[in-house]
Amino acid sequence: MQSNTSRSDWRFTVILAFTILLPCLYGFGGKFLEFIHIFRGNTDGMFAVTPIVNYLLASLGFFCMLAWATMRGMFHDIEAPKNTFWETEEWLDHRETETAR
C-alpha cells in the first residue's frame, strides 16, 4: 500500500514530537519526584497530594490510551486520515446535492 506520509513529513513530526514531549516528560518526572518527597515527610507538601494524584491518574489513562492506539496501528500512516476525511466529506456533499435534484 502506498503511504500518504512523505519522509520530510515524518521527520518534521518526529522533531516536533520531541520538542513537545521532552519538556512534558521533564515536567512529569519532576512532579513525580516531588510526589515521592512529600510522602517522605515534607508536611508542607501534603497540600499537593490531591492535585498530584489527580494528575497522575489522568496521565496514566492517557499513557494507556497512547499505548493502545499505537498497538492498533493508529499512527502507521499518520497522514492518511486527513485524506480519508476529505474524500468522505466530498462524497457526502455530492450525495446531498444529488438527492436534492
Binding site: 513530526t13 516536533l16 513537545i20 514531549l21 512534558c24 499518520i78 497522514e79
Partner: peptide, 12 residues
C-alpha cells in the same frame, strides 16, 4: 497541512 503535527498537538 499536517495531520502528524495535529496529533503531536493532541498528545501534548
Amino acid at each position: 497541512w499536517s495531520h502528524g503535527m495535529s496529533m503531536v498537538g493532541f498528545w501534548g
